[in-house]
Structures are given as C-alpha cells and as structure tokens.
C-alpha cells in the first residue's frame, strides 16, 4: 500500500513537472531570438503601422506573406493611394510593384543588409536599456511575452515589445518619445503560421516596365574613415544625448554635391546628420516648414509623423538633422555641430 502510494506520488510529481510551462528565456536571449525569428518562421498576416506626429499621424495597412528565410510580399491596403501596390523581397533584391504606373522598380534590399547591422547594434541597445519583463498577455488567443526597454539614463520606457511566446516573433511594437507619448506602433494581426505559402506568391508580375531603383551608397561602420573620405573638413556634434554613439556613415553625391551622412544611435533611437559645403540648401518647399534657430543661425524644421527634419546653414555649409528626437534635442545637437 505504502509502495503504491509512493508510486502515485511520484507519478503526480512527474505529471505536474511536465505540465508546468517552460520557463521564459532570459530577456537578452529572448530579444536575440526575436530578431532572428523571421528567418525561421513563415507566416501570413495583416500589419498595421501607425506613426504619430505632434500635429498629425499617418497609418499604413498591408497584408504580408513571409516565407522564411528571406521571401516576403507586402500588399498595401491603405492609404488609398497605395492600394494594390506591393513590395516583393526575394533574397537580396526588392521589387516595388506600382500597379498605377505599371512599373516594377528593382533595387537591392537595403533592409536585409541593415538587419545584419541591427544584430550588431543589439549590444548598443543592451548597453543603454534595461530589459524588463511585464506580465504576459495574449494577442488573438496567443500567449505573448511583454518586454519593456527602459532607458538607463532617463528611466523612461522607450519601447514595448509583444513577443509570441511560442515562435518569438514580435507581434506588436510600440515606441515612445522623450515625453512618454507613443510615436509609433506596429501591430501584426490575424497571423497564421504556415509553411505552405506557394512560391508563386513571390513572383514578379509579368508585362510591367522594369526600372532600376536608386541605389544608396554602401554604409560603413568605420565612421572615422567615412569622415576622412568626405572630401571636405566635416563637422561632428560635440553633444549627443546620453547613450548615443556613431554607428555608420556614408558619402553620397546628390545632384553632384558630395554629402556626408552620419548616423548616431542609442540602440533604439536614431539621428542622422547630413552636411555639404557646396551651398546646396535643403528644399523644403513641399513641406510646411516652420522657422526656428540653431545657435542664432536661422533654421527651419518640418515634421513627418514622429520624424523631425531640422535644416540650417553656416556660410556655404548646409546641415540637416533627421530623427525621432524632440525639436529641442535636435537643436541642441545642431548647435554643437557648429564650429
């Protein structure tokens, strides 16, 4: 009797042990896994991207078919002007299918290259943000781990990720501005995991005019080398928000004007500094530009959703700062660029 009781107890113990949910991975491991999830997980879903500006917001809605590791089709549903257009990514190439103009723009898939860089920049993120688990939630009946990325210097939550507990795919992402207000949100809805997406889905429509898209110059993470190759004495900011460091740069010729582009990031937030010394001003005529100053220099800025572009000049040298930081932060960075 005693023996059978012991066996029952052992059986109960084993049963409870196997029924217990697997412990959540460490936050760092989960983030790493989430970054690489699209390379191993195929799915069909609807994606909603919202970008919130100070005065206006914009939304984009598209269907996505993703066949791991590197074939994706986005089929735009909204805004209305994009309805029916699609983007097909096949390996290292991207095809932008414009049904209204009956043309396909073929270009290298920059995002694919950037995703490789992104894995390297995860260490910058981990250095500047505390990764904190929030209570688990569910999306469309699927369990999700909620991860908060809190800035180590300000304590503010800068990003909130909802990561599918089973596949580790990011199903929802919210980014917050320096004042805590949301500035962007991406939501994957109606997701269906499947390995049965026909290859034909990623075929490029026949009968359309194919044109080559503008290729950007290769970015380099050797920022010092990029600066030295600009062809003019480049200026760099003496002030950056805490945690920001240079992550990449390039020199491109725009309308024959050598333009230096430097990118700074803290792992989540980014700011781009463009400069030329050929007196080539930024054309803001298509935007509602607002006057301001950068260290007493007349300047103008425009807002595109959460992104602000600040432009000013110092003699024949023209600058543009672009980023999701506040205008005050951009002005402070801009002032520190000036000699």
């Amino acid at each position: 009797m005693a023996r059978s009781s012991a066996l029952l107890s052992l059986a109960a113990l084993l049963t409870s042990a196997t029924a217990a949910p697997a412990p959540a991975p460490s936050a760092a491991d989960l983030l790493r896994d989430a970054m690489s999830a699209p390379q191993r997980i195929s799915y069909v879903a609807e994606v909603q991207v919202l970008r919130f500006g100070t005065q206006r917001s914009d939304a984009t809605l598209y269907r996505v078919e993703h066949r791991a590791p590197d074939m994706t089709r986005r089929w735009y549903l909204a805004p209305q002007g994009l309805y029916g257009d699609s983007i097909v990514t096949r390996g290292s190439m991207t095809y932008s299918v414009d049904v209204k103009r009956q043309q396909v723009v073929v270009s290298p898939d920059e995002d694919a290259d950037q995703q490789i860089a992104a894995r390297g920049n995860l260490s910058i993120l981990m250095a500047n943000y505390n990764v904190v688990y929030a209570p688990d939630e569910s999306i469309d009946g699927r369990g999700v781990h909620v991860v908060l990325l809190n800035n180590k210097y300000t304590g503010q939550t800068t990003m909130r990720l909802h990561i599918d507990a089973a596949t580790h795919l990011v199903l929802e992402r919210q980014q917050y501005g320096s004042n805590g207000s949301p500035i962007a949100q991406t939501l994957i809805e109606q997701i269906r995991y499947t390995n049965a997406i026909p290859i034909a889905v990623f075929a490029i429509p026949a009968g359309m005019h194919q044109v080559s898209g503008a290729a950007r110059g290769p970015e380099s993470t050797d920022v010092a080398h990029v600066i030295s190759s600009a062809g003019f004495p480049a200026l760099v900011p003496k002030y950056l928000p805490e945690g920001f460091s240079p992550i990449a740069g390039d020199v491109v010729s725009i309308k024959g004007v050598p333009t230096l582009h430097l990118i700074y990031s803290d792992g989540i937030r980014t700011v781009s500094l463009f400069q030329n010394e050929k007196d080539a001003a930024v054309d803001l005529s298509h935007y509602r530009a607002i006057a301001t100053t950068v260290a007493d220099h007349p300047a103008r800025y425009v807002e595109e959703g959460p992104t602000t572009l600040l432009a000013w000049a110092d003699g024949s040298r023209h600058f543009a700062l672009v980023g999701e930081l506040s205008l005050a932060e951009l002005e402070k960075i801009g002032a520190s660029v000036l000699p």
């Binding site: 984009t60 992104a118 989540i268 054309d283 992104t307």
Partner: peptide, 27 residues
Amino acid sequence: SPTIDAAYYLDDHAALTSAVPFNEGTI
C-alpha cells in the same frame, strides 16, 4: 546652387532605421 529635396534626407534616414534592432525600417 542645387537644392536637395528634404524627402531624400527623410527617406535615407528611414531606410537606415532598420539598422537598429526592432525598428520598422522602410514602411
């Protein structure tokens, strides 16, 4: 002198945000 459309800078910046983990990149 030539002027450079602000859209170029905005696009270039957006394309590069995908170099940052969990950013959307070019929408």
